[in-house]
Nucleic acid binder design. Structure first.
Lengths: 194, 194
DNA sequence: TACGGCATGTAATCGGTTACATGATTTA
DNA sequence: TAAATCATGTAACCGATTACATGCCGTA
């Protein structure tokens, strides 16, 4: 009993785990590639991560008992994953827990904050680029919104949030570019959010 | 010459690196603890990370030549970091490069998206919690805005964006709670953003 | 049947996170 | 001078990212 207790993983399930669990619970058994497809035109819009995670993560979840894995024996012999009851339980628990607050992890904002450390015109350049970017995204979301088949159906709420966010962003960066043009210096050297 | 070339770090500088560089460029030489203080009431609002990073990262940046480190010889003998010319160069380059788009990495949205996999009322619970959360943040930002000393000064732009975002969020979650009350099912089982 | 692209995976590494641990300063 | 809090760091692990590598399949 003097054995050092083996170090254990403390937080075994992260957001990506629940994306996998959630997708499999929602869409039924899938391969990693199909998962990628699903993610790419849904949660991928606001929670992206590299494709390889969708190969590694299901295996991990299998080892932990949250998924079952079945290998095809025809041609491509690819792995099809399905969620177990344990997996569903974990998903339920997660959904029941408080979500906490997210953050805007926006590299554009980050650069803007430090823009005074760059050459003059840095903030302006950033603002121009960001306005265009968000403009594009906004347009894409509007297109998605209009292209939804059943017109009576309520929008996917996440899409709605995406729209609101992009609208706010366009407003923000446009405003900023405006101010810059009026030569109001922005991003003061020791600017803090307070 | 048959030696395998040693594997090299390909992307040595990430966002956290530039937060450190930017802070040191802006505020002058600092210790890790002082960096933490600065981050906590500025970029920390939209780009958070654990405190320990602010001890590890400067050391890494020192090794890479972007910072210089000087140890106090009085009581606490703590390490004071300052940015080198190389560091300033890297910061400039970063600021000049395109920032790309950020994403809303919001766990609340994520759960909402999968809420149909939970028991009935899941979406409603999430909406209630999130509305309160964003309400709080909004209030905090408003307070910060009002507490700024020089009233004539333009707001820190990042704070402005924070306000816009929180306003949009409050609107979104409130709307959603409203709909839920009217028993419009939300977060359809295979809802995708399209 | 060759070729191009779609599909599927693995290997290696590093940054980020969690957890532990202790020292210095202030204040009651 | 004891307690509390502020301050400062380290160790170890793991998820996430990058890069590599190859296989199947439709089509010309």
């Amino acid at each position: 009993m003097t054995d050092a207790s083996p170090p254990q993983a403390v937080v075994s399930l992260g957001p990506v785990s629940f994306i996998v669990l959630g997708m499999l619970a929602t869409c039924g058994p899938m391969t990693s590639y199909e998962l990628k497809r699903e993610v790419d035109n849904s949660v991928g819009y606001f929670w992206s991560f590299p494709r390889s995670q969708l190969y590694a993560e299901p295996q991990r979840l299998s080892r932990l008992g949250y998924l079952e894995e079945q290998q095809e024996d025809s041609g491509r012999r690819r792995r099809v994953f399905s969620i177990t009851e344990t997996g569903r339980g974990a998903l339920h628990d997660w959904l029941a827990q408080s979500a906490g607050a997210g953050e805007l992890r926006d590299p554009g904002l980050l650069k803007l904050f430090f823009s005074a450390s760059g050459p003059a015109g840095t903030a302006q350049a950033i603002a121009a680029e960001q306005e265009a970017l968000h403009q594009q995204r906004l347009a894409e979301y509007v297109r998605l919104q209009n292209s939804t088949d059943d017109s009576a159906q309520p929008l996917s709420p996440t899409l709605r949030m995406g729209l609101l966010y992009e609208e706010a962003s366009v407003k923000f960066w446009r405003e900023l570019a405006q101010q810059e043009q009026e030569n109001v210096p922005v991003g003061a050297p020791d600017a803090r959010i307070s």
